[in-house]
């Protein structure tokens, strides 16, 4: 697009690039961009110079449409800057300031072209101010759009972090432990929402396969409340395990929870035991093991399991 406005804009930026850059940097520094210490001045300067170069190239080739391919590189650099800001823990305002603080230096540069034209007499001034008004509007639109683009990338970087942490927490909070050959336990702690339950389910069932476990004990002592949905998730896990050829025992249902569940009309149609220890004893019996008191046992009665 050989639009006058953008041609003029590109020229203005090219002519005043050094002033724009130093003014832009100064504005960001005075706005507190370096205060947190998360970024060094030299790094900020490089980012600004690179972006300004690419913006000028974009204006020369692509007019003022930020969707034009000519702005591709400028947007990539901007995205990179915003993403790293997101990772480094900058606020959205701090991140957006990178683009928006470029407005004033750009306007100032445009004004200087009018001032320069003033020396040339009436007709030139009128033409220059008309062009400047148009350029000002174009620059505003362009920078606003680039600012939004920066925000979008910034938010995505933050969302990625949150999603990753969510997965990590889910994995950390669902340890499947082996109690005996063929007997697994899944001690659940905390509230069970559907996403977490899905992770729990999958990791339990996969471990059943990996260890050829016939029995899995799901211990919910650490689960504060069991609502209808949670109960359904539990039942589904039990049903899926059964389809694979393994049995589940649910343990640690607290009295209040049992009461609530009955009131809710939820029946856990599975073997359930009050404690993990009780469930373990049942599991051992099912795989043909028994727990007996060893002869030399002291008062604490150490548990010994031996083959039948």
């Amino acid at each position: 697009m050989a639009q006058n406005g953008s041609g003029g804009l590109a020229q203005t930026v090219a002519e005043h690039q050094d002033e724009i850059l130093s003014e832009w940097l100064a504005l960001q520094v005075s706005g507190g961009a370096l205060q947190s210490g998360r970024i060094k001045e030299a790094e900020l300067r490089t980012q600004c110079r690179t972006f300004l170069d690419l913006l000028r190239d974009g204006l020369e080739q692509g007019g003022t449409d930020p969707e034009a391919p000519a702005f591709g590189r400028a947007k990539e650099v901007l995205a990179e800057v915003s993403r790293s800001r997101g990772m480094q823990g900058f606020t959205p305002t701090e991140t957006a300031a990178f683009v928006f603080s470029l407005k004033r230096p750009m306007f100032n540069a445009l004004n200087r072209t009018i001032e320069a034209a003033a020396g040339e007499g009436g007709g030139a001034v009128r033409a220059a101010s008309a062009a400047t008004a148009r350029d000002t509007w174009d620059v505003t639109l362009l920078l606003d759009q680039l600012g939004l683009h920066a925000m979008e990338v910034f938010m995505k970087a933050r969302e990625d972090i949150i999603a990753r942490q969510g997965r990590e927490i889910s994995e950390l909070s669902t340890p499947v432990v082996k109690l005996w050959d063929g007997v697994l336990a899944l001690p659940l702690i905390g509230t069970l929402d559907s996403e977490r339950t899905q992770v729990v389910m999958e990791s339990l069932l996969q471990t059943i396969v990996d260890q050829s476990a016939e029995i899995a004990i799901i211990d919910i002592t650490g689960v504060p409340t069991v609502d209808t949905l949670t109960a359904q998730h539990l039942l589904k896990t039990v049903a899926a395990a059964r389809l694979m050829g393994a049995d589940c025992i649910v343990s640690g249902i607290r009295p209040q929870i049992a009461q609530t569940m009955v009131h809710l009309g939820v029946e856990l149609d599975v073997t359930s035991k009050a404690t993990l220890a009780d469930a373990f004893r049942v599991a051992l019996t099912r795989i043909g093991r028994a727990v007996v008191k060893a002869p030399r046992a002291e008062a604490a009665a150490p548990v010994a399991a031996r083959r039948r």
Binding site: M201, E202, L205, Q206, I208, V209, K236, A239, A240, A241, L243, M244, G245
Partner: peptide, 14 residues
């Protein structure tokens, strides 16, 4: 019936 995979079992229940 033997060897049903975990993902298959979960899906079948759903």
């Amino acid at each position: 019936v033997v060897g049903m995979r975990p993902a298959v079992a979960i899906t079948l229940v759903e």
